[in-house]
Amino acid sequence: MATIRVQTEDFDAGAEIAKVRTGNPKVGAVAAFVGVCRDRNDGENVSSMTLEHYPGMTERELARIVDEARVRWDVIDITVVHRVGRLAPTDQIVLVVVAGAHRGEAFAACEFLMDYLKTRAPFWKKEETPQGARWVDARASDDAAAERWMTGAKRDAA
């Protein structure tokens, strides 16, 4: 099972976590990640950000990433929720929830999903700062994080 949503509205992480485990006695572990809008980035204060996406491709790319996680790990359920539109510091941006039988695959799949989402799913952030609006540059560290999964080292460790 998998749930993928792109939405402007906020999400309730607790409710999403409850959904993947309630009534399923095979679930022994739920790992969740919440990405949050910060008030500072690259040395500038950030008063708000606007998330743009590619409707259609975004959902398809997220589905491909979820499928890839399922090939790599035996997990029971995955939820990915990503917000778009205008967000302010302290607002939630993204949620990934993975339910599995054991924590190892739940943790690993959750981290993999975030690393791949950040480098593959077509979202773009534009920040408002005192110096004006600016598009956020992609980070080499995010590419490096995603590439770890291609070596197989991380997968073997999990």
């Binding site: 990405g35 590619y54 990503h82 941006i93 993204v94 950040k118 799913a121 773009w124 598009w135 992609a138």
Partner: peptide
């Protein structure tokens, strides 16, 4: 066909 910069979501 879509052209865009490297992605920055998450």
């Amino acid at each position: 066909v879509a052209f865009f910069p490297p992605v920055t979501g998450g």
